[in-house]
Amino acid sequence: MALIRSIVKLGAYILLLKKVFAIPEKWSVFFKSTLNEINKLIINSIWIVVIISLFIGAVITIQTQLNMSSPLMPRYTVGLATRDVLLLEFSSAIMCLILSGKVGSNIASEIGTMRVTEQIDALDIMGVNSASYLILPKIVAMVIFIPLLVILSMFTGIMGGYIVALFTDMLPVSTYIYGIQSYFVEYYVWYSIIKSVVFAFIIATVSSFYGFRVKGGALEVGQASTDAVVMSSIIVLLFDVILTKILLQ
């Protein structure tokens, strides 16, 4: 029964996407909506990305330094490990998981509230493709700008480690800088960006899907918001495994 329900839900998700990817009714309205979404979903998320990345970068540096007991390991490994953890996993996957909580719940509750207050019905009655009008700008904003947030996260995370090196006596700044420059693989950055594009698409569409199919009132909107975060997080993690296997093998 649960399997059938999942298949039905997947079918409904695909049908919604089919409605979403339509030519906008009016390009000027679409661009304006996209700019609004960039402001709401991306600009408003910069502070959380900066704060979390800065602290996690600092913590990774401290923990790597404290756990490196072998005298055979060069000290610059601390910088190298911090950089690679940030580039390979934290700034893309973990940051997108955090954003699925912030942005995903925002999207699901916004669209869900519009559904229960008949605003989506009002759009449909006017002859507007409500799915495309509401969801497409969110997808475009997320897919284009989440990779930029990921790059910002990489930079601030590495800065977090740099601050640790600068203000503590755990390791010299020059060693840390040498570490973050050693054995640099440019492909890791691209790998992270590719992953973040996929994750951004998942967060935007899954959250919109849960918001769009709300029936009922405030309670159901809250439930849809929670379901959207849980489901998009699970799918992000699933695709993290799949993409890592495909892109790094």
């Binding site: 609004n36 509230t113 207050t117 008949e118 605003q119 019905d121 009002a122 449909d124 009655i125 006017m126 002859g127």
Partner: peptide, 21 residues
């Protein structure tokens, strides 16, 4: 045609359904 017809329709919803934003 449904889309075109809907442009000839005005609707007042029970809860007004105004766009909050």
């Amino acid at each position: 045609d449904v889309k075109l017809l809907r442009r000839e329709i005005g609707m007042l919803f029970q809860g007004s359904a105004l766009f909050d934003s």
